[in-house]
Amino acid sequence: MSAVTSIAGLLKVSAEKKLPLWKTVQLTDCAEQDMSEADSWEKMKNMLSVMRETDQSYDSRRRSLSGLSGGDGGKMEDYVRSGRSISGPLVGEIIAAALRMGECNACMKRIVAAPTAGACGVLPAVVIPCGKAMGLPDERLIEALYVAAGVGQVIAQRASISGAQSGCQAEIGAASAMAAAALTHMAGGSSEQIANASALALKSLLGLVCDPVGGLVEVPCVKRNAAGAVIALTAAEMSLAGIESRVPPDEVIDAMREVGEKMSPTLRETAEGGLAATETARKFRENR
């Protein structure tokens, strides 16, 4: 099997070999890295464990070094627990989980970059709460992480997963596409539906700029994790309902790359434009 450079290629290999998508991703990587399937599985299992440990160790009293982040995951949890949540406990928990992980990252706790540290909350926020709500065994969640990694790898190779190169669409956008694919797999969707879900999610975040206040991975990064997670859920639901992206996934990824190339450098992690150039952001910088 050759290196993964397109979603269409992943689907083709899976169909030819009569393998589920996650297995194609695993076998391709094992061949490239000269790693056994068992070692690869253990490594992926550890990623899930770290995600869970960090989520469970969340402390709503903890604040980041800058003082900009912390406590919002706790507020969301309290609100969901109060029963007043408009979208109900599952979506509420997805939002809370994304905030918790984003805040853990900002507060220098251990996280799994997925695909980056700034976007580390999106994938666990759908995989862990939805896995629990759907009553799925861990094996299924680990498979879903392979699906997510496969989609992320294609995005990294065809476009980018760096905010400095392509803006936030390449971080939260990529993470949301990965999470949508993972969730569709967990729900029993076909390989085509998995691919389609990733396209629907990424399309929704095309053009998103990287404009961190003070140049820190905090504002708006933490809350964009929550938005990216809910978009992933929306995309998976649409795909499972049989709704198709009119533009296929590989073309959406190529469009993301093109948008990134056309994006002004002031909107690519340099903290010179967008939210980073607002009056509030300037005051924050001056007061430090």
């Binding site: 991703v25 695993q26 990587d29 490239e32 890295q33 490594k43 992926m44 550890n46 990623m47 770290v50 980041s64 853990c104 990252n105 900002a106 507060c107 220098m108 706790k109 251990r110 996280i111 799994v112 970059a113 997925a114 695909p115 980056t116 540290a117 700034g118 580390c120 994938l123 992480l145 392979y146 997510a148 990694a149 496969g150 992320g152 790898q153 990294a156 190779q157 997963i161 990965m178 820190l216 991975v217 905090e218």
Partner: peptide, 21 residues
């Protein structure tokens, strides 16, 4: 590039370049 460069590394936040690097 390995899939564990996409899902990973496991690191202390907040930034792969400014903290892990």
């Amino acid at each position: 590039m390995s899939i564990f460069d996409i899902l990973g590394p496991v690191m202390v936040g907040p930034s792969s370049s400014h903290t892990a690097g």
